[in-house]
Design a protein around this nucleic acid. Structure first.
Length: 419
RNA sequence: CGGAGUGUAGCGCAGUCUGGUAGCGCACCUGGUUUGGGACCAGGGGGUCGAAGGUUCGAGUCCUUUCACUCCGACCA
């Protein structure tokens, strides 16, 4: 993409209503725009980044054998009445009527809708196990939305639901999802911890949260210094000093809940009469698991964990572009030609590259380099005066290290550095 | 939902106490000069001052009501 053709409204000034670093930076760098309490427009950079994160989540789930589907965001409240959650969810559930005076809700989560989908189509143990998911917008009418994408009212969430004939098989899937989540968070370049969690209103036998480690996190967790044990303070009393798993020392830290996996059992399938015929010819309720990832929240989490005083520092797999080609003087024909050549070559190699070709007189080198730092693209190639001597500058965003590269075999040198 | 604030140009703010022609910075447009770290000079466009009602000769400013947004807390798959 060419910078000159993209809508990237970066700003020098900090918006007055943002407090959290990720919120400030995502606004200033032109990724998102506030439209109401807890509601955000995703601008081109934000949309690209969101899609990248979404794609990683999808790829890993598909590898693990999950089926992607798409459910309506609007669901009849009658589904929610089947499990009693129409009452239990309270005001967080946004309700409204259609023109025929029928009651609907904006889905905050989709257990009922997904159980309904499966009970209509799965009748035999031979069709199990089954893991069905969607990556779709959710709406929760939060009492107090805050912190930008961290706690919005409308947010993108991956929600998966697995269906099994036995508890043992559900536990196998639960373990598989834990491993799959670890792959996703690792690919995204995040420092995270899997912790024992409270199953809360959702019920079920056990649950684990995936915590992105960040001081600004809303959750307090206890982690073992010796092994990989961790727990939310909700389930492990704050005064515990010894790891229940290995006896090591426990320390307290903050985390952002970005994923949560639950062993559900039959708490939804029983009231909704979602049953299959087992090999002993008996009707049994599905044994279920449910697995969530806050996709839009991950964007905030990535920035909370990866930024400096100059702006965002996206990880390689989440970045909207991998390389920013900065033309120091876009009116200089030699520089522009060299930049265009590199742009075409990198594109042909499949690299996501942004060409900062802005040539208006107000957008000098300083503006371009500041935008590069604020947006947080992992690498920049500066094509400036030295190009006439066969040299360009290569910048790594994380740490802002600079080095000079020869224009000979430039693409190969760059590809090597990107690897 | 309790507590505390804020609404004035796209963004950040002053002006409100003490009523008298709507301001500043950034951004934007035009021309010129600049050109490797968010340039400079000159000119210019953009506002029913969140909304409604009231007081007044006159309201951004005073009064009443209302809406929105933010922060702290409680809440939270």
């Amino acid at each position: 993409m060419r910078f000159s053709r993209m809508l990237i409204p970066t700003t020098k000034e900090t918006p007055n209503d943002a407090v959290l670093t990720s919120h400030i930076l995502l606004l200033r760098a032109g990724f998102i725009q506030s439209i109401g309490s807890g509601l955000y427009n995703f601008l081109p950079l934000g949309k690209i980044t969101l899609d990248k994160v979404r794609q990683i989540v999808k790829e890993e789930l598909d590898k693990a054998g999950c089926n992607e589907v798409h459910l309506p965001i609007v669901t009849p409240i009658t589904l929610w009445e089947e499990t009693g959650r129409a009452d239990k969810f309270g005001k967080e559930l946004l309700r409204f009527k259609d023109r025929h005076e029928n009651n609907f809700v904006l889905s905050p989560t989709n257990e009922e809708a997904m159980v309904n989908l499966v009970r209509q189509t799965v009748k035999s143990y031979k069709q199990l196990p089954l893991n069905v998911y969607q990556i779709n917008w959710k709406f929760r009418d939060e009492v107090r939305p805050r912190f930008g994408l961290m706690r919005g009212r409308e947010f993108l969430m991956k929600d998966a639901y697995s269906f099994h004939a036995t508890t043992e098989d559900m536990e196998r899937e639960f373990a598989l999802m834990e491993e799959t989540y670890k792959k996703i968070f690792t690919r995204l370049g995040l420092a995270f911890r899997v912790v024992e969690a409270d199953s809360g209103a959702i019920g079920g036998a056990g649950s684990k949260e995936f915590m992105v480690l960040a001081d600004s996190g809303e959750d307090t967790i206890m982690v073992c210094d010796a092994c990989d044990f961790g727990a939310n303070v909700e389930v492990l009393s704050e005064d515990e000093k010894v790891c229940p798993k290995c006896g090591g020392g426990l320390s307290q830290t903050k985390g952002i809940e970005a994923g949560h996996i639950f062993q559900l059992g039959t708490v939804y399938s029983e009231p909704m009469k979602a049953e299959f015929l087992d090999e002993d010819q008996k009707l049994k309720p599905f044994v279920m698991g449910t697995y969530g990832i806050g996709v839009s929240r991950l964007l905030a989490g990535i920035i909370e964990q990866n930024h400096d005083e100059n702006g965002c520092v996206w990880t390689k797999e989440s970045a909207p572009f991998l390389v920013d080609i900065i033309v120091a003087k876009a009116k200089n024909e030699e520089q522009m030609a060299a930049a265009e050549k590199l742009y075409a070559e990198l594109q042909s190699k499949g690299v996501d590259v942004l060409l900062d070709d802005r040539a208006d007189k107000k957008t000098g080198f300083g503006v371009k380099i500041k935008d590069f730092e604020l947006i947080g693209i992992p690498y920049a190639v500066v094509i400036g005066n030295d190009v006439s001597e066969g040299k360009v500058e290569f910048i790594t965003r994380d740490g802002l290290q600079k080095e000079s590269l020869s224009t000979e075999n430039l693409v190969e040198q760059i590809l090597e550095k990107l690897a």
